[in-house]
Computed example of a mutant assay.
Amino acid sequence: MPRQVDHNQRRRQIAEAVWRLATRGGLEDVTLRQVAAEAKVSARLLQYYFGTRDQLLLGALEILNADAEQRARERLAALGQTPSMQALVRGVLLELLPLDEERRNRHLVYIAYFIPFLVDPALAKVAREAPHALEDLVAGLIMQGQELGEVSRDIDAAAEAAFLVAGAEGIQTTVLLGQRTPEDAVALIDHQLTRIFTATPRN
């Protein structure tokens, strides 16, 4: 009797091959044949699961994003049942920093996607049209903080969220390059959050 194939596991096997190639030398010149060889599958099987090269890169990125969201949910859940809005925003932003091997490897893969998203018209279109989900999440948490009295009503939640996410992404690069320690990066995030979350919560 033939062995039943786990299609999700096979897709992950191929996605992980993309990630390994990304961290070793970028993705600009990666071919379907190279990915197939790295994943130890046939080129035909790779195309069966993902189709074109662009579809492969986007599919591998979707799997990586799903992993990141799952790990983020787990870490946020570890904050307890009733964390403050500041703690939740902090938890979201720390996901953007390479504070452990898992997050470091993930961010290295994200960086490898940067050039293809710049130079490949189809991928660039996807990047341009991607919603600002993370900024919207942080803005929503800040607005909840305003409702709870943790954040001043004078704060522009959307502008602060955009600044915090962009700042965390910039800090991420300096940590990856060894210009700043993870501890210093976290301290910078905390400094900005202390500036925003200055109001006294209502009882």
Rank of each mutant, 00 (worst) to 15 (best):
V41F: 11
L79P: 06
A37F: 04
L57Y: 04
S42I: 02
Q86A: 14
F50A: 10
M85D: 06
A37M: 04
R73A: 12
A78M: 08
L96H: 09
E74G: 13
F50E: 05
L93V: 01
A87V: 10
Q55I: 01
T52P: 00
V41D: 02
L64E: 14
L57M: 12
E95M: 07
D67E: 15
L79V: 05
A78Y: 10
L76S: 03
L79Q: 09
A37N: 09
T52H: 07
A60H: 06
E95D: 14
A43F: 04
L56Q: 05
L56N: 05
A77Q: 14
G59N: 07
G80S: 12
A77H: 12
L79A: 09
E69D: 13
K40C: 06
E95H: 11
A39R: 09
E95G: 15
A77V: 01
A68R: 14
R90H: 12
E74A: 15
A43K: 14
R44A: 15
G51L: 10
L46R: 08
L93Y: 05
L97S: 02
D100Q: 05
R73N: 10
Q55H: 12
R75C: 06
A78H: 13
L57N: 03
F50G: 11
L57D: 02
E102Y: 03
E102C: 04
L97R: 04
R33Y: 02
F50N: 08
G51Y: 09
A66V: 07
L46M: 09
A66N: 10
G59E: 04
A72C: 12
A87F: 10
A68T: 12
Q86I: 02
G59L: 08
G91H: 07
L56W: 08
V92N: 02
A43M: 07
V41W: 10
R75N: 11
L46Q: 03
G51T: 08
K40L: 05
M85P: 00
L79R: 05
A39V: 11
L88E: 01
T82Y: 10
D100K: 02
R33I: 01
I63W: 14
Q86G: 05
P83H: 14
R103G: 02
L58H: 10
R75T: 15
G91Y: 07
L45V: 08
Y49E: 08
L64K: 13
L88C: 05
Q55C: 02
M85W: 06
T82D: 14
R53N: 03
Y48V: 13
G51S: 13
L45R: 09
R53H: 06
D54E: 12
E62W: 13
V35N: 07
A66L: 13
E101C: 00
R73I: 00
R90S: 10
L99M: 05
T52R: 07
Q55S: 11
L45M: 11
R103V: 01
